[in-house]
Design a protein around this nucleic acid. Structure first.
Lengths: 332, 332
DNA sequence: TTGAAAGCGCTACCAC
DNA sequence: GTGGTAGCGCTTTCAA
């Protein structure tokens, strides 16, 4: 009979003290006689009491919950990111309130509204959502951290260091003798896709202005990698390196090349981005991103920002690491 | 100036009506004059008002939030499951409150307590947590659905149909001429691991009582698959089929066999469980589990159960599907 | 050190 | 149809 519905008043009554004292004990606030404290605590135990957090947050105007709004994404990324957030959140005594936005921008608004009064701040990842729509959806006054989202003036933002990663990989490809490097890009609306593409162009222009630059646009999935690579094969494969926008596209490329009997890395090198677990088993060279770290960092930045003093909004780049495996080994 | 902190009273004042009427409009409850409704709605728009849900849930005793407590797991499973839950939840107008429990059972209690008053029900996945500890942690009166957790008397429960899956795979191996099938099992504390192991034993006993039965215990990861397989190789590989407890173990087995120059599937067949994305690329035969469906179902069962009438607790099995690929093709 | 009481923002009951 | 108002369970002044 540990009544799941014991209230602070039940505790007060049983302990023989006032509601106020119970509250003080529970929050370690104010002075309270050790004996009183013991009384209260034992009443709490006896009743199996635990405070109603909705009530608490109503009266303190703080919920100790963080809203998390993520796109409907597949693969490991989602899980890793949430794992990181959860880790940091629970360390700080926060809970995560989750909501996926499906491509529909309208839903972002809805999700945000559904969280009003329920969260102390939000982490928003909306790589496809134009800055304007996002800003009009974000209630002002609500602390927010942007993850991998365009714009970000006025908010703290975290980003993957796409430029650093791609630059390192292109440099590596050039240094190992590749001359015709083609880039398979993700969708035009996707922020990461665009940054990676631009970084590829910039690095080529800077390091090898005389070499050809070529971008094939697709989407961030293996099917797209397959289609694009097949197109190259149909052209006679005028290429000696394929830099895919992410690992899934690289995977599509790899399988297609294998089926066509093209030697990797001797005839063509292949590189990806993300370092999904798959990459290791495919012996795929790629750029590793610390996604758990990204999630943790997002929560930490948010909590710090909620601390009251509004430190000026900054954009932080999440470091990447070049992972060289078999698919980009120098050709014989 | 859409003040993020407009309250229902601000709206009432601006609209020139009472708080009660505003509430009625917002909840579509009771009768309200269309003209009044318009007034109120335009005031709402003007103020950018959206209700404080903490307050609402305090007064209605319903939060429209579902607590989700999951183990700290890796791989795709987590993301897929949450995706399914989120999909079903948002369809019903519910939010997900997330919390990972790290192996520590103590944390389950903590997580549950942290959700008091914040959720209308919980979905708990704790394959490692003994039934007793779980029951004592679960506040009574709080609707709960168990996912892949031991026991489950008194609660709705969802499970993966481990028995059906393993039985189908063992049958397939026997039918394709395999005679010495060894099972690499997951950890003894893990419910799925035990069910799969038992199903292997039962099926062997039933279909091929004269053939040897052998179980090697490890954990559900690739490293363990590697270690166990290496042990078999060191023994001279007295085996023509390896039935791994899950895909990650199968992966470890596969890589180890490849390195040792053992022909798969000619010399040894390999099978896994889960059908992670990796499996397709490894051409690994496995059992497919619809994880998104499992997540959706969990939410639906929970919401139905919260509907007030306590339908008798049932355990539901989530169907699996035999996926035959290259690693179990009959030996020549 | 303790207690009484005023809200926090909202819903729902009851009276008009 | 509409408005007044009593709580929901908690924190937090303010007095005692």
């Amino acid at each position: 009979m540990s009544g799941s519905s014991a209230t602070i008043r039940d505790v007060a009554r049983l302990a023989g003290f006032s509601v106020a004292s119970v509250s003080r004990v529970l929050n370690n606030s104010g002075k309270v006689n050790p004996a009183t404290r013991e009384c209260v605590l034992s009443a709490v135990r006896e009743l199996g009491y635990s405070p109603n957090l909705a009530a608490r947050s109503l009266s303190t105007a703080r919920s100790h919950a963080i809203g998390v709004i993520l796109p409907d994404m597949h693969g490991e990324f989602f899980g890793e990111l949430v794992r990181g957030m959860d880790r940091a959140a629970s360390e700080h005594g926060y809970l995560l309130l989750l909501s996926n936005i499906h491509a529909d921008p309208q839903m972002a608004n809805h999700a945000l509204a559904a969280m009003r009064g329920l969260v102390d701040g939000v982490i928003l990842m909306a790589p496809q959502l134009p800055e304007m729509e996002r800003e009009s959806a974000l209630p002002q006054g609500l602390p927010a951290v942007l993850v991998n989202s365009p714009g970000g003036h006025g908010h703290h933002a975290l980003r993957i260091d796409n430029v650093g990663g791609v630059t390192a990989m292109v440099t590596h490809l050039l240094e190992t003798g590749r001359r015709t490097i083609v880039h398979l890009a993700g969708a035009r609306q996707n922020l990461d896709a665009m940054e990676r593409q631009q970084a590829y162009r910039d690095t080529m222009a800077r390091l090898a202005p005389d070499l050809p630059v070529r971008v094939l646009e697709g989407t961030f999935d293996d099917a797209s990698g397959t289609v694009l690579t097949q197109r190259l094969i149909d052209e006679g494969l005028p290429v000696d390196a394929i830099l895919a926008g992410n690992d899934m596209m690289a995977l599509g490329a790899l399988l297609t090349l294998r089926e066509a009997g093209v030697a990797v890395p001797d005839r063509v090198a292949v590189a990806g981005f993300d370092d999904v677990p798959l990459a290791r088993y495919l012996d795929l060279s790629t750029i590793s991103v610390d996604i758990v770290g990204l999630g943790m960092r997002a929560v930490e930045v948010l909590i710090a920002g909620m601390g009251g003093d509004a430190s000026p909004p900054r954009t932080e780049l999440n470091k990447t690491r070049l992972v060289l495996r078999g698919t980009t080994r120098p050709a014989c």
